[in-house]
């Protein structure tokens, strides 16, 4: 049952990320413009148009918050530099997916660390109920841990794969999930030892990010 629940959670998480990337808001229209249009529509009154413009304003706000979060993320984590060309903020239009923020540090084949934040999502809020559960945090393969004072769930595994020459290679994989209100910070890394990963995690300003995600 535990394994099934893990599979359900991971599937749900991947589903959230894939849907969000399909609905990227590319327009950088002004938040104020949509707020003003909403007020004008309400005065008519055109409630449906009011709602539509308020939702667009919310989307722009989420984009802005995403950009501000990227600014507070470090330029470097240990020896890994931020790959800013891969930075991504996607404010969805579905309402329940939330906003996704992504940054890479370093690159393969040496080491790559990924920071993904899904914010203000009702779906994530229900997922966080699991992550905040102390029983779940101690399930096999998981460890409860704090980063910048915030509790999270850490997993570490050695997965096997084969290289170009056909040799079996053991890849250390670490993942930390930190639930914050209805948002989730996920940090993943390949090719780091547990100690190295924990040291890297302490570079993430979780409390500053949490303040913006409230």
């Amino acid at each position: 049952m535990e394994k099934n629940n893990l599979i359900i959670m991971k599937t749900l998480y991947l589903f959230i990320i894939s849907i969000a990337f399909c609905t990227v808001a590319t327009a950088q229209a002004d938040f104020a413009k949509y707020a003003t249009t909403a007020k004008t529509s309400y005065a008519k009154p055109d409630l449906e148009d009011t709602r539509y413009n308020l939702m667009l304003a919310l989307q722009q706000l989420d984009m802005k918050v995403g950009q501000e979060i990227l600014k507070v993320l470090p330029e470097k984590i240990d020896t890994l530099s931020a790959q800013k060309k891969n930075d991504n903020v996607a404010a969805n239009s579905g309402g329940f997916i939330g906003t996704t923020i992504h940054r890479d540090y370093g690159s393969l084949p040496t080491s790559k660390l990924e920071v993904d934040i899904v914010s203000n999502s009702p779906l994530v809020a229900s997922l966080n109920a699991w992550l905040n559960n102390p029983m779940f945090a101690q399930m096999s393969g998981r460890k409860a841990m704090k980063v910048d004072g915030y509790k999270g769930s850490y997993t570490y595994e050695l997965s096997e794969s084969t290289d170009a020459a056909g040799n079996t290679v053991k890849i250390p994989r670490s993942e930390m999930q930190i639930p914050i209100f209805s948002s989730l910070i996920t940090v993943k890394c390949d090719f780091m030892t547990e100690d190295q990963f924990v040291k890297a995690l302490n570079n993430i300003p979780v409390s500053k990010i949490a303040e913006m995600l409230k």
């Binding site: 938040f31 104020a32 707020a35 304003a57 706000l61 802005k64 918050v65 501000e68 303040e211 913006m212």
Partner: peptide, 11 residues
């Protein structure tokens, strides 16, 4: 919300 946005009080 407009006032808070201008003051960078996003939450």
């Amino acid at each position: 919300s407009e006032t808070a946005f201008k003051d960078n009080k996003f939450s």
